[in-house]
Computed example of a mutant assay.
Amino acid sequence: MARRKPENHDEDDANDLRYRAPALEKGLDIIELLASAPRPLSPKQISERLNRSVSELFRMVQVLEKRGYVAMAENQSGYELTNKLFSLAMSRGVSKNLLDHAIPVMRSLAENILQACHIVVVSDDQIVVVGQMDAPGIPSFHIRVGYRQNITDTASGAVFYAFQSPKVRKAWRTALQPNLTPEERETFEAQADRARAEGHLVAKSQYADSITDICSPIFSDNGLVAALTIPYIKSKLSVSIEDCVASLKEASLQLSTLLGATPGSSNPQIKS
């Protein structure tokens, strides 16, 4: 029987170095930096944060811009990520199936209530908008696809938290709430409890005083997958919040059914 060759970590490290791709690493460093930055960054700021020279990164930024991964901000203050990576990710599997079903349901909902709506999923400690529909022919609150916000700062985040199992909810509580004030923590927990009890949530938006978020969970055959939200703005053409709630819950039930949701577990929409 042949003797097993002893492990050689130095050789493994050497192989890792041999197959490095410095140009690719620079591009990924830029993308990851811009993804974590709260605002656009200038070439000088990018170089300082990555500890590289501007000239070293200039060509890489130009290539990323040409390929559509980064773009200059509208105010020309620096570069920011586009939605290209997000769109590529959303073209896969479950996400694509969700949007294929959600877009026509959202279009019908927006036409029925004359309000915009959007659908979000959870990504780490944030919610991210994966689909959006404007109200037809009238001004409405527009949230761009790819927009992210902390789970604890949104009605949809409270809805996601509400419909987790007790074990998962406890883990989320530990991970998400350490930086909240006692008042913020109490408000978030109360919203989640209300959402769980009523099957939806109506809450004042933290984004603007004039907006009321109306949010409902979306389920598939695998459980909770998304949340559908109406950023309600009262106008002469708007229907009542109560009518929006009814239409939203009907749309959520329709979408959940299309995604294969069945009666039972944590799904309050489909009755046995």
Rank of each mutant, 00 (worst) to 15 (best):
A2S: 12
A2C: 07
R4K: 15
N15Q: 10
Y19N: 13
R20T: 04
A21K: 10
P22Y: 04
L28F: 09
L28R: 04
D29K: 11
E32Q: 03
A35G: 14
S36V: 02
S36R: 09
A37Y: 12
I46C: 03
L50F: 07
G68T: 01
A71G: 11
N75M: 07
T82W: 01
K84A: 02
L85F: 10
F86H: 07
S87A: 09
S87Y: 07
G93W: 04
V94P: 01
N97Y: 02
L98P: 00
I103M: 12
I103T: 05
L109V: 12
L109D: 09
I113E: 00
L114E: 08
D124R: 05
D124C: 04
Q126A: 06
V130E: 05
D134V: 00
G137D: 09
F141R: 05
I143Q: 06
R144S: 15
G146K: 02
Q149G: 08
D153W: 11
F160Q: 11
F160Y: 12
Q164E: 14
R169N: 09
Q177H: 06
E184K: 14
R185S: 14
T187V: 02
Q191V: 06
A195P: 11
G199N: 12
S210K: 01
I211M: 12
I211A: 11
N222Q: 08
A227I: 00
L237G: 13
L237N: 13
D243Y: 11
A246W: 05
A246P: 03
A251Y: 06
L259Y: 00
